[in-house]
Simulated scan of single mutants.
Amino acid sequence: MKVYVFKSLPPFLWGYTRDLRAMWALEECGIAYEAVGLDCGPKGLQDEVEFGVVSPFRQVPAIDDDGYVLTESGAILLYLAEKSGKLIPSDLKGRAQVYRWTITSLNNIEPFSLPILFADLQGDSNPHLQALRPWHVEILDRFLPTIDQMLQAQPFITGADFTVADIILTCVLRELRKTEILARYPNVEDHRRRCEERPAFVKVLNAYEDRLGIPRGSAR
C-alpha cells in the first residue's frame, strides 16, 4: 500500500499534519506500506497535476491500495481498520460507536480546535481570528467536559479497547497540546498522552521527523 505523506513542511506545521494519522493507523494495523513523500506547496509535488489525480483537493494524506485510491483521514482510518480487522470491533453496534466518535472528533472538536491553533500561530497578524478565539474555546467547552467524564470511567473513547477513534481524537487534541485548554480536562489530557506513548505512534513520529529532516522532538 502506498501512503502519500509530507517530506517537507514549514516549521509551524511540524507535528500537526494529518499524514501522522494515516501512518499511525497503518502501524497499529500491521499493514505494510510505502511512504511517498511530497513537498508542501506552493511549488512542491503537492501542487503538481499528477497528485491531483490521486487527491482531488491535493491534500495529504491519501492512500493507494493496489489501485484503490482513498483520501480524507477519517475515511482512510476506518478503511484501514475494516481491511485489517484491527482497531475496530467485529460487531455492528461496536463499529457504529467507532464511527460515532471518529465523526465527533472531526465534526464537533476539530472545527474549533483548528481555528484556535491558527489564532495562536498567527498571533497579532490576524486580529479577526484572535477575536474569535474565546468563542471557539467556549464551543469546545460544550464537548470536552462530557468526554473528560467518559474517560474517567474508561481507558479509551469507545470503552476498554484502543480503536481508530482514539487515533483521530488524539491527533485532533494535538492541535491543542500547546494551549491552556487541555489542562482543564485532566482525563482528556491523560488519554492524549497515553495514546502518544504507544510504540506505533513513537515510531511514526520519529520517522516523520527523520523524513522532514528536523531535530528529534521538534514535532512533539
Score class of each variant (00 low, 15 high):
residue 144 L to Y: 07
residue 74 G to A: 05
residue 93 K to S: 09
residue 71 T to L: 04
residue 65 D to P: 10
residue 131 A to F: 10
residue 142 R to E: 04
residue 123 G to I: 03
residue 102 T to A: 03
residue 137 V to F: 05
residue 123 G to W: 01
residue 129 L to P: 10
residue 99 Y to G: 08
residue 134 P to G: 01
residue 123 G to Q: 08
residue 139 I to C: 07
residue 127 P to H: 14
residue 124 D to C: 03
residue 96 A to Q: 10
residue 70 L to R: 03
residue 66 D to A: 15
residue 78 L to H: 14
residue 145 P to N: 00
residue 121 L to G: 04
residue 89 P to A: 01
residue 126 N to E: 15
residue 134 P to C: 07
residue 130 Q to R: 01
residue 99 Y to R: 13
residue 87 L to Q: 12
residue 130 Q to T: 05
residue 101 W to P: 03
residue 118 F to E: 00
residue 68 Y to P: 01
residue 127 P to R: 14
residue 141 D to Y: 02
residue 102 T to C: 05
residue 66 D to I: 02
residue 93 K to T: 11
residue 81 A to T: 09
residue 99 Y to W: 07
residue 124 D to G: 04
residue 119 A to L: 02
residue 133 R to N: 02
residue 95 R to L: 11
residue 117 L to H: 07
residue 97 Q to L: 15
residue 78 L to I: 01
residue 87 L to C: 12
residue 89 P to D: 00
residue 124 D to T: 04
residue 118 F to A: 07
residue 105 S to I: 05
residue 141 D to C: 13
residue 109 I to A: 00
residue 107 N to E: 07
residue 136 H to L: 00
residue 90 S to M: 11
residue 74 G to N: 01
residue 131 A to P: 00
residue 119 A to H: 04
residue 107 N to L: 12
residue 114 L to A: 14
residue 142 R to K: 15
residue 76 I to Q: 12
residue 132 L to Q: 15
residue 79 Y to I: 07
residue 104 T to Y: 13
residue 141 D to G: 15
residue 115 P to A: 01
residue 80 L to K: 06
residue 138 E to D: 15
residue 96 A to L: 11
residue 80 L to S: 13
residue 84 S to D: 06
residue 132 L to H: 12
residue 100 R to E: 15
residue 101 W to C: 01
residue 87 L to V: 02
residue 145 P to G: 03
residue 104 T to H: 06
residue 96 A to P: 02
residue 119 A to D: 09
residue 118 F to V: 09
residue 82 E to G: 09
residue 143 F to W: 12
residue 127 P to S: 02
residue 94 G to M: 08
residue 133 R to F: 09
residue 95 R to G: 05
residue 115 P to L: 04
residue 111 P to S: 14
residue 86 K to C: 05
residue 134 P to D: 12
residue 78 L to S: 06
residue 94 G to K: 02
residue 77 L to Q: 08
residue 117 L to R: 09
residue 97 Q to G: 02
residue 125 S to K: 15
residue 83 K to F: 00
residue 64 D to Y: 03
residue 93 K to W: 05
residue 90 S to E: 03
residue 111 P to A: 14
residue 66 D to R: 15
residue 113 S to G: 11
residue 76 I to K: 10
residue 114 L to Y: 09
residue 142 R to T: 03
residue 129 L to V: 12
residue 91 D to C: 11
residue 103 I to C: 10
residue 99 Y to F: 15
residue 133 R to K: 15
residue 108 N to P: 00
residue 145 P to V: 03
residue 116 I to M: 08
residue 79 Y to F: 14
